[in-house]
Simulated assay, not measured.
Amino acid sequence: MTLIVYVNDVLLASDSLQDIELLKKFLDDQFTIKDLAPLKNFLGLEVARSHTGISLCQRKYALDILQDTGLIGSKSAAFPIESNLKLTIDDSEPYEDLSAYRNLVGRLLYLTITRPDLAYSVQVLSQFLAKSTVNHHKAAVRVLSYLKATLGQGLFFPSSSELQLKAFSNSDWASYIDTRKNIIGFAVFSGNSLLSWKAQKQATISRSSAEAEYRALATTTCEIQWLIYALQDLQIDHSQSTLLYTDSKSAMSIATNPVQH
């Protein structure tokens, strides 16, 4: 059984309904709780279940963002950010409402809980919270236009899926023009279920694309190891080898044979 507590909200998950009922009775005797029945909403997350699996989304939360920013009637976009877009600190005049920009990026950041497709875009926008420009705000509006076209997207966890961790790792070498640092990204699956993902700026500067990819592999490996420990805490046996994918032959060569560095 798993019990998750956030302030005064409690989630219970177990493969035994009897155990859940016993625990609810015990908690009610101690604190007088209110049973809200099967989970449907939790902290802005919408949960839907069927015989095929469980889906998570934040459709209402996304609609609230569009409504508050006045873009509910705007034109939609097919993707959140252009692949060749390179934002810098002083690429245009300063944006007039810095607090509004910060608030928008913060709300988009919370949206990435169920929208990994926004992780890279939000990571790029979050680099300019201290000093945002008009171009930065235009990029944020583009993300909102994409959000309007994909309101119902989220995560789906199928009821029948193989228990084997597999991860995908990548790095964009020297993508930040101001600092020459890299963006690393990874996604870790258990079968067909996406468990963990991240897009972040590396703390150090890599001197080559191979080094950047190798550092991304190392970061992904740490995440995989953490997930294995988490599965052990949940008494879930993960006996199969974890698969780790990268598109860098140089990084694979270094990982296979550390002498070739």
Rank of each mutant, 00 (worst) to 15 (best):
V5D: 04
Y6L: 09
A13M: 12
S14D: 14
S14K: 04
D15R: 14
Q18F: 15
Q18D: 13
L22P: 05
D28Y: 12
L36P: 00
L36A: 05
L45S: 07
E46T: 14
E46C: 06
H51E: 11
T52Q: 14
G53V: 09
Y61L: 08
Y61P: 06
L63M: 13
L63K: 12
L63R: 11
I65K: 00
D68E: 13
D68S: 13
T69V: 08
G70V: 04
K75H: 14
S76C: 11
A77N: 11
E82Q: 02
L85E: 02
L87R: 00
T88H: 05
I89N: 10
D90S: 14
S99W: 12
N103A: 13
L111V: 06
S121M: 09
L125G: 01
Q127C: 07
T133R: 12
N135C: 09
K138Y: 10
A140N: 01
A140R: 01
Y146I: 07
Y146N: 03
A149I: 10
Q153R: 04
S161T: 15
L165Y: 02
K166V: 08
F168W: 13
F168S: 03
D172G: 06
D178V: 00
K181F: 01
N182Y: 01
I183S: 10
N192I: 01
K201D: 00
S206F: 05
A216D: 01
E223S: 11
L231G: 02
I236V: 10
S241A: 14
T242K: 00
L243E: 14
T246L: 05
D247R: 07
S248K: 06
K249D: 07
P258L: 03
